[in-house]
Design a protein around this nucleic acid. Sequence first.
DNA 1: GGCCCTAACTAAATCGATACAGTACTGTCC
DNA 2: GGACAGTACTGTATCGATTTAGTTAGGGCC
Lengths: 345, 345
Amino acid sequence: MTLKELAAELGVSTASVSNAFNRPDQLSPKLRERILSEAKRLGYRGPDAKARSLRTGRSRIIAVVLAESLTYSLNDAVASELLSGVAEVLDAHGHTLLLLSGRQDASQVPGSSSIADGYIVYGLMPSLMMLDELPQLGQRQLVAVDFDLEGYPAVHIDNEPASYAIASHALRTSARRPGVINLRLTKHPCNARISPDQELLPADRTITRSRLVGFHRAFAEHGIDPASVPMWNVEENTFEVCAPVIETILDLPDDERPDLLLCMSDRIALTVLTLAEQRGLRIPDDLRLTGFDGIAEGQYRSPRLTTVRQDSVEKGRIAARMILGLAPREDRQLPTELILGETCP
Amino acid sequence: MTLKELAAELGVSTASVSNAFNRPDQLSPKLRERILSEAKRLGYRGPDAKARSLRTGRSRIIAVVLAESLTYSLNDAVASELLSGVAEVLDAHGHTLLLLSGRQDASQVPGSSSIADGYIVYGLMPSLMMLDELPQLGQRQLVAVDFDLEGYPAVHIDNEPASYAIASHALRTSARRPGVINLRLTKHPCNARISPDQELLPADRTITRSRLVGFHRAFAEHGIDPASVPMWNVEENTFEVCAPVIETILDLPDDERPDLLLCMSDRIALTVLTLAEQRGLRIPDDLRLTGFDGIAEGQYRSPRLTTVRQDSVEKGRIAARMILGLAPREDRQLPTELILGETCP
DNA sequence: GGCCCTAACTAAATCGATACAGTACTGTCC
DNA sequence: GGACAGTACTGTATCGATTTAGTTAGGGCC
């Protein structure tokens, strides 16, 4: 049963039926009442959302594009918090949430999935790596979270000061050989140690890169040549992808293995923790460890993770408000908090 | 730039442009190539999803309707696992995932959100309580998870045997005064102790109710009159909603307070645990406790929760396959596993 | 009574695609 | 050379609504 059929049944125009549902002031209460009750009786369940969205151009759907697979993201504390912040705002304003994975065919995102009224893109994803293709996105509504995209507003935290703070703290302890595990830092995929000639992403684009700048500042202040600090890169935050890289680090001979690992995420740090414990390494005596994010899991377990806490829920809320036009579409930077856990006291 | 404009620009029919994108076999490779490259050059980004979904009637979007708020569900381990199972299958078959909250205006779900090709409804929700209104749903694609809906396939676990098993185990310990905390069991909202004259939902409809049947069987076998066992009800799985009810239980005088609480979810059991510990009650000495679900958090902490583990990811996968027509649309029941933790050894 | 104004409603164009029925042309085969 | 098949493409109805411009009826006012 369509609006047209219902109109015919009632002997009124389609415009009146449409108005009965959308603009009560455009018709007499009496007719409106008749239309609504007949609709109910005949089982017409209101205007079809597909047709309406075509005609009006708006679907009241906002998409969140996630860097990792949906399956991973839904079980990741940080991504879940972001999503729940987004959902909170969308819900309160009558919008719904579409989940997309950035790991799908690059051409699909946010391209042909263009049912959504706007996109919140979380984290730099492989399909956006080719920064040249960006003009393709058109001026469609888009907000970037945790990375920068030229021409679009971004929401992130104060990465450089935060990473400087945690690295400074870590270096004040007796660590002599720091190492860094990065997340998607290199221009071309690399899941291993980063060699000196490898091209990195620009420092003003990715959070990982600006965190590294903070680390380097701390290194320099402690008399360590940043170029001498070994770095590894992982392409995904998952256990499967990280574990092999971490194992090559842990398998290094004692005098080459870093005695401090600065990790770009709690997830990575926790994986290091698990694998190090399996090998009988003592934390923090044999190996000091810092993370980034402040997820609950890192604070439950023993030893508690030394890390930087960020408010991912609030990031989600802000991104959602920007997309809905409830907040100015401009870059936002949120504060963080240093958590002194036991993995690097 | 629309398909029509592109066609005009190229001097071909709209049909050919459409075919270039959708049915390569319907036109010569040469023309197809020309269309695709011109499209790229002119910035046409492929057929508009809104229009396509109207015309074809399919959007490649599947909605999951969640009983609790999205904000809660996204941070709930059980719901997240279900979603990740759903996402896994949808992703593999080129569909996307729309999240809806059943707590929105009842008329909205799944009504006017009818952009989706199918609905996976998770848990009985307030808006579906009025079981009379169900015919409104039409014969739209729908799969129920963790509750039964007449006329639609449902995915759940072997609730009655599982709850019988855990209750039997618990009663073999020296518990003398069992009590039950239910989740959304009463026909009309009730967030308190259930009085004997209160109407319960039918046993073949909700998981909570069929679990209760299992409990009752165990009570009877242990010489306890099921009618004499005190029951409480909570309307939501959230801390905020559960805590007041749990506090009234814990505040009972020692000789009235149950020495065994069978909870309908791990979430509830963990809230009991937290509040009981705050009061200085010893678990399991002063109070024995069982949950239901087998979430990770219950197994990390000490004491470990005695519970029933279910595979929520698999439930999600199965529901998704049914919606996509990859699995027969018929009721499915998954097995569970009893976990003997320390809250009721 | 004539004029204007408003309220209540309608007719038809439109949103951007898809898909069916058809046309034009080329080539094959007896 | 004519019948027939196949390929490559086109014209247009259609999906189900929204919206603009326009029509009609009735009321108020001088």
